[in-house]
Amino acid sequence: MQAQISHQRPTTWKRPPVIFTHTLWRWAIYTGALIYLVLAVQTIDIDWQRVWLGLDRGWKFVEGFLTPDFTTRWRDIREGLTESLTMTVTSTVAGILISVPIGIGAARNLAPMPVYLACRGIITLSRSFQEIIIAILLVAMFGFGPFAGFLTLAFTSIGFLSKLLAEDIEECDPSQIEAIRATGAGWWQVVNYAIQPQVMPRLVGLSLYRLDINFRESAVIGIVGAGGIGATLNTAIDRYEYDSAGAILIIIIAIVLVVEYSSSYVRRWVQ
């Protein structure tokens, strides 16, 4: 009986390929990719002599990083840090305040079509450019310093937070929304009673994540003149003070770590 069954039914099974379902095409594409890789590697032109000369300078940087100097430039570092942290917090708060209404407007299950399109437009605009490009633009408009940085970070936070908030609202459990609507609740009441409880933990999590991103970005946009610790770092590197630069990098890592740990703690608490 058992033998008969194994004769009738196959005993091996392989998951069917998801893409490139045709065997011949699959092999052709794989071989093509391999040939391309080999040719591409051959076009890379490395000047080994320059690598050798550069090693020396690289080693100096590593040395500086291993012996960080917090004291010599401490005033500059402290100033840059305060600026960066101020920029981070204010831009995150401003970003959250503006992106909540935009996020609600960009959720298809809550907003009428014209509002939806307008809010999606704002989000797309904010997301189309990288922070540095916006920072260059705003530095040109508002001059060097942290105000341009604040505007840059607030503007980019809007795109990030509203988009993810809108997507989260659209994924809300529709039966809870239906139940609140069935009681005769108005639009604001539906938002307050059915949507807010469902998206709040995620909104808190996203805001903390954005705080984290904004701090890191504040270091980057400082290089193009938007103030903060990035400007201090840039100056230190320009002066070949790798020990001070190392100190700044270590401080950045430490702050990102602190934000990371505290945000995961807060997220667990709001769940």
Binding site: D173, S175, Q176, E178, A179, I180, A182, T183, Y193, A194, P197, Q198, M200, P201
Partner: peptide, 11 residues
């Protein structure tokens, strides 16, 4: 109205 999967606001 009373619902199939209760439809309470969970949080």
């Amino acid at each position: 109205m009373i619902f199939q999967e209760y439809a309470l606001v969970e949080r």
